[in-house]
Design a protein around this nucleic acid. Structure first.
Lengths: 401, 401
DNA sequence: GGAGTTTTCTATCAGGCTGATACTGTACCC
DNA sequence: GGGTACAGTATCAGCCTGATAGAAAACTCC
């Protein structure tokens, strides 16, 4: 039951930690001279020089010109260079499969998009179709990376559902995936390390690392799309929960009467603000969806912008419930920042003011509210970050010459 | 704004980490021989021996007899001994001030209790009175520790309110403390490191470390007393939030109509299940408090046990709201375990079954529910643990002979 | 009771890493 | 062109780990 929980250290550990410190300094503050790295990390000049040498040989950092002299020998700037390393990313969404090659800088260097044919959306065997498509996209990405002479080093997969730490997708309703071992399928096929994660969680990671949440240690990303979900970062780390179900606020209970009902396949909040709930309520209020398909939050925003009074009322009610959920999130977690993302991100101007008004005076501490900075790419970039972490921890030490 | 976030390592770090690994192994598995420690930690025999020597000299471990020989030289058992080190703990509660000397094993070796004189409870200067009392208790504890020849090495303070990371109590209504710098007052007076923390948070730490939550990485402790609060442990660490307000679920909003009201000094949930709310509702239902004072949850439990039908109905309603809050906690955090503590802890038999019934089918994953194991001492033991951590990180390396 | 066996504990040494010191290299200024 | 100021590099002591060999302690067998 135990025995290897305690972790020990040796000289190699020291070197790895210090190399990581140098890389972190360069990632956070852009190009720095060796002296500046020393000042920032507290490492001696000799150590910085030696470790920088290792990192240069490994291609993780590059020289980036000189700094103007201040009277003496000008310093050589060192810059983190993720360009030398690529990861493959897969975002299996409800209506399309998206693939990308992303370098360690977070730049997307190659994209693949596969819209889902409408007939497939509700086909009986859509689970298999979507899975095979996902595998083929990864293969295509691998080939593209090979063609660039920079083989992909890891794979990150984002899915709209619950994913265990072992890379198994427990339940993703939009894909009809149950207990699908995506992680092991991909790692067996490619031999690469794979991380599989919920899409809201990776969005939070993406915004935390390279978007609106840079430098923030405690944040929540709220994603409103077909359903509603959140990604939670506490203490700078993704919070997954004991069963990887943390942040599934679609199940939040918002009324005492909710205790009289059960919520087996969908949640209380989700039934109110999700696509199905919106469609139902719109029908009751006489609002027609643009072309007869189920209404999404994005449609409601469009209608509001075009002046619909009924849609405005529906938006306000939706906002009420979203605000209750966000208020409770804030009460429980006390985040520094709440990021509004997903389809909502583009309508942040309609959302954040109303949200703030509803929070003020009702929660102990109203956090900063911000729109997603990365938009549609947040998921891709977040998944790339998680994939990069899979290799970077060991890559720093591997091949140390 | 930045500059020293990155942490570096050196040879000393390695030694400290490995000493901590040895201590953790001994704490987790009881007495072990040097060989067993080596097997468990992966350290070489020579290293284990040398580090064990350091720890023996520092008094953090002691020899504990021999193991029966298996044919050769019998091994000497080593045992963690927190007895050699003491911390002072202060629990400033609503109705009493409690002090204790606790050793690093978590054993309480000395207690001080100071009930609050009823006249003081609502006196205009009760803030000052309680503060001076707190300081005097700490002085008394210091003297007691000195008398044992084992001076106290740190101070842990638990308060029913919000405490910043700097040891300042921002707001503790039950004490009428606002912006009281307890931490700096105590550290100036004693020269010892001080940690000040919310009582629900330290209760969670106590149960996590030595109570119902041993070995659990994600747990929530729900404390129902005069108000309602929670302590949250995620990934094995206390989650405080960006403004130390995490877990203040008294402010959770449980109805859309709550958005029509403001909650400046008290919260929505707290007004329903806290002492004031219970008293009001009891009056409406014709339930009399035993002796005319405000009704607490504990009183309701007593009335239920004595067969009161009205109290039973009130309990059920209270449970409904507590269940809503716990359900939302579970949805957001997905903890492995929820511990019911505080005054509720003794009535766990009345609470947990009803709570479980209300959660099943309504949250994605129903956690384990358990009563507090440490009872009234959970706060003391948790605060002692936090205080011990203040010194242990540096104590391992200090005085390494 | 003594020698051999087995296992534990300890001493010694090589190797890796950091940090201090001294030294070399490069550009600017007078 | 020499002096100055700062950046980068080589050398070495100190600390820590881990490997190896040796000393110590208890048991077994004759």
């Amino acid at each position: 039951m135990s025995g290897r929980t305690s972790s020990t250290a040796n000289a190699e550990t020291v070197s790895r930690v210090n190399q990581t410190a140098i890389l972190d300094a360069l990632r956070q503050h852009g190009p720095l001279s060796r002296q500046e790295i020393g000042a920032r990390t507290g490492l001696s000049a000799a150590t910085v020089n030696r470790l920088a040498g290792h990192l240069l040989r490994k291609g993780l950092i590059v020289t980036d010109g000189h700094q103007p002299s201040t009277g003496g020998r000008p310093s050589i700037l060192l810059r983190y260079s993720g360009r030398a390393h690529l990861v493959s990313v897969l975002h299996v969404g409800a209506t399309r499969t998206e693939g990308a090659l992303v370098d360690f800088d977070g730049s997307i260097v190659h994209r693949v998009q596969r819209p889902v044919v409408p007939d497939v959306l509700h086909a009986a065997d859509r689970a298999t179709i979507r899975l095979e498509e996902a595998l083929s996209v990864v293969t295509e990405l691998g080939a593209a990376a090979g063609g660039r002479g920079q083989p992909s080093q890891a794979i990150g997969v984002a899915v709209p559902g619950v994913a265990g730490a072992d890379g198994r997708v427990t339940w993703a309703p939009a894909l009809d995936w149950r207990e699908v071992p995506v992680g092991s399928l991909l790692s067996e096929r490619t031999g690469l390390p794979v991380v599989v994660e919920n899409d809201a969680n990776v969005l939070a990671v993406g915004e935390h690392h390279r978007g609106a949440g840079r430098g923030v240690q405690d944040l929540v990303a709220v994603v409103l799309g077909t359903g509603i979900g959140t990604g939670i970062v506490t203490g700078g780390r993704l919070h997954r929960g004991s069963r990887a179900a943390a942040g599934e606020i679609g199940y939040m209970l918002l009324d005492r009467s909710s205790l009289a009902r059960l919520f087996p396949g969908f949640g209380d909040l989700e039934s109110r603000v999700g696509s199905a709930g919106l469609t139902r309520q719109a029908r009751e209020r006489g609002i027609a969806a643009p072309d007869g398909r189920p209404l999404t939050a994005a449609d409601v925003f469009d209608l509001v912008r075009s002046g619909s009074v009924e849609a405005r009322a529906l938006l306000e009610e939706t906002l009420d419930y979203v605000a209750l959920a966000v208020a409770n999130l804030c009460t429980v977690l006390d985040p520094e920042l709440v990021i509004v993302g997903g389809e909502m991100g583009g309508a942040a101007d309609l959302i954040t003011p109303g949200l703030r008004d509803r929070l003020v005076g009702r929660v102990p501490h109203v956090p900063r509210l911000a729109a997603s900075e990365l938009g549609d790419d947040a998921v891709i970039i977040g998944a790339a970050e998680l994939a990069a972490r899979l290799v970077s921890d060991s890559a720093y030490v591997a091949a140390t010459r």
